[in-house]
Design a protein around this nucleic acid. Structure first.
Lengths: 228, 228
DNA sequence: AAAACTATGTGATATTATTCACAACAAATC
DNA sequence: GATTTGTTGTGAATAATATCACATAGTTTT
């Protein structure tokens, strides 16, 4: 087994993609090859094999990988067999959309508290949460309900005042959707998702196609036409 | 100037982060150094300089970068000076949240059509859209309204039937939020954002921390305890 | 049971991305 | 105007990641 190296971050993210693909397969499909996985996910077959080999010899030569076994293994590697308690901070449209997202429950993420500046009762309840709690209660609730992950969907103006409370609350991980790069600390692992950044990347790609070097000014920027 | 190399994808994504940071600075801050940018964004100063140098010599030695000039340049590089027409497909909670997201307008992304299985009038209008259009009208509307980017926020069950229509509609780029890896083609550049994957990556990190490192060798191997 | 096929696991190699280290330059101070 | 301080831009070194290529092993066919 290939245990001499620690798995790259990129590998871990792909595991999640593999799992999703495996879950989408019909029940009659028992085996899958690196070839197939690679083709459906626009990856290199060797990369798929290497990714999986970081965690064990899951495949059978000449045959492929057992779908059932692979799903189990990836679930285990990603820690999806354990339930994680999740809180959501900032219940605007996006926060509410995430709170109601059925995919979380399926993956063992339990939404068990919602926080906002404006508290409010909820009926019906969302996940385990029967009300939107005042944000000042966050530190206590995180401890009481054993919340490991907080999802931040507050407006960017609020992030500064809220981030202190969040980072010192005892939570272990934060998924931040506010358009502000929140930094990880020793104790809290932060992952930032920026919706604008994603669109801006697309805009860059479009911009490349738009200007096929007609404009000499554009040349200055060394914009690569071949990138996409 | 460093125009001999094409800028890495990673560089382009960071430009967006730089821009966001620059926009958050007070009006009185005229200059900024790679040191400062790096510190606030948890990056290496050399990386910041190199990223910027791919596109031109924007800085002044001994001084730093002009905030105003840098903002202008990044806006131009990312193509944010041009307005892009955007359509959103699947107006559930997430689709609606994105449709109403004020950040898009600020970056020159104009939401000009919403599509769903269930059409509906809208008042007040959202962006440029006065109604939710029946999804069957998508190909025509994309052409008529000159939509360059489609954002997909349909449920995963619908993605297969909808993706064909989307990919052949003449749109140039797609931002897909459905938990399914949609592949780019020659004509359409697809970017996938998966909310579950983000959470699952955090789960993996928590899982590593959970397993106490009894054996010092474990630290080297980076393998979750339960797999050994 | 040998040959032909198929698919994994992985060492070697190639590619991409990051960081170091320093020359080149700008401004401030003596 | 020489010296000190600060900061960029970039070649070189390093690190991370991806791909190639093939030995190894399971399966099927003859």
């Amino acid at each position: 087994m290939n245990t001499k190296l620690i798995p790259p971050q990129a590998t871990v993210k792909r595991l999640s993609i593999y799992l999703r693909f495996l879950n989408s397969l019909g029940k009659d499909i028992k085996m899958v090859s690196s070839q197939e996985l690679a083709k459906k996910l626009a990856l290199n077959p060797a990369q798929v094999r290497k990714d999986l080999a970081y965690f064990g010899d899951f495949g059978k030569r000449g045959v492929g990988y057992s779908v059932k076994k692979l799903k189990e293994q990836i679930n285990k590697i990603l820690g999806l067999h354990k339930t994680r308690n999740v809180g959501i901070v900032g219940i605007g449209r996006l926060g509410m959309a995430l709170a109601c997202y059925p995919g979380f429950e399926k993956k063992n993420f339990k939404v068990c508290a919602l926080f906002d500046k404006v508290p409010k009762a909820l009926s019906p309840k969302i996940g385990e949460a029967t009300e939107i709690l005042d944000i000042t209660h966050l530190p206590k609730v995180v401890k009481d309900k054993d919340i490991e992950i907080l999802i931040l969907t507050v407006p960017v103006e609020a992030i500064k005042e809220i981030s202190d409370m969040v980072m010192t609350s005892g939570v272990k991980a934060v998924l931040n959707f506010a358009p502000f790069k929140l930094l990880s600390t020793e104790d809290v692992h932060v992952h930032n998702v920026d919706l604008s950044t994603e669109l801006e990347f697309l805009s860059y790609s479009l911009n490349l196609k738009d200007s096929p070097k007609e404009d000499p000014a554009e040349e200055l920027y060394g914009i690569p036409t071949q990138l996409l």
